[in-house]
Design a protein around this nucleic acid. Structure first.
Lengths: 155, 155
DNA sequence: ATAGATGCAAACTCTTTGCAGGTCG
DNA sequence: CGACCTGCAAAGAGTTTGCATCTAT
């Protein structure tokens, strides 16, 4: 690897600070997760990584997804269909379509008041919060058409 | 079973309307889930049910948890630590302590505006929403003491 | 050189399923 | 009786781990 872009350099530094290496597998796994907003499962990431690295093992994909999540480079979320990964680390909510199962990103409102309210009622320290919406997405509401949505990209 | 209380009768009716029976196992499994707000996993429910029905099988516990969830008698939620069940079917949010892992119930605010906002931004039909809070609970903030909290009961 | 990472296969955990027998109405 | 349900054991799915080998620095 002679050329590296700025993002890769920053990532490289982040990992190095923890004694971790930016291997080809790790880089491609991260690229795959970042290239979609479909909140992929480990199995899906594996399938896509294999297109570029046919000899990669599923264990490597799992290990790296966990490692990258531990480093905060991506996030992990439990879902009825299994653990899903998300390369979008900006604060955002999710909308799950009960018809097709797709998970859409919804920009989070800057809602400090919500946390404050819970904190004052419970006496707990609220560090974070996330809202999950459930309903029917545009594509599923009117059979045959998509709708202007939240900014989804690929499948 | 000669005596049944009102709740049991109502449940019985709900199940019968679907061709389901209120067997001893099913009833006790439900009682166990309802007797705690610890959002138990199937394994924990199994352990507790076995105290009252030593010959119950884990398969029966799984089958009934799924059945009861399908009937809306209890709810199911995905969690990093596995699927958890909740006998509290009233609308409520959750607070997960990042230190001890406990999940506390938080009364949901009647927030129709939140749904409306997402609906208008996305064009989606929002049927439901739930917020997950993360932070440090009272017990974990000050080592050695519990705190006045949201209404938790047993462990 | 050496700590870290990989590929492979085996192991593990959690959950579901097939089936023969039991139970409820 | 017939439909539903149970216990048991086996199967499945998803994920993790041990280990010899390889690779990045």
């Amino acid at each position: 690897m002679i050329t590296k872009n700025v993002a890769a350099l920053a990532l490289d530094a982040t990992l190095h600070a923890r004694g971790l290496r930016l291997t080809r597998q790790r880089r491609i796994i991260l690229e795959v997760v970042r290239a979609t907003d479909a909140h992929p499962t480990a199995a899906l990431v594996y399938r896509r990584v294999r297109r570029r690295l046919p000899r990669v093992s599923l264990a490597t994909v799992y290990r790296n997804l966990r490692t990258l999540a531990a480093e905060g480079v991506l996030t992990e979320r439990a879902d009825p269909s299994g653990v899903r990964f998300d390369g979008n680390t900006a604060s955002h909510d999710h909308f799950t379509c009960v018809a097709c199962g797709r998970i859409y990103d919804v920009p989070a409102r800057a809602d400090r008041a919500v946390r404050a309210r819970v904190a004052s009622r419970t006496g707990f320290e609220v560090l974070n919060h996330r809202t999950e919406f459930y309903g029917r997405c545009g594509a599923c509401r009117r059979p045959g058409g998509r709708s202007p949505v939240t900014g989804q990209r690929r499948k």
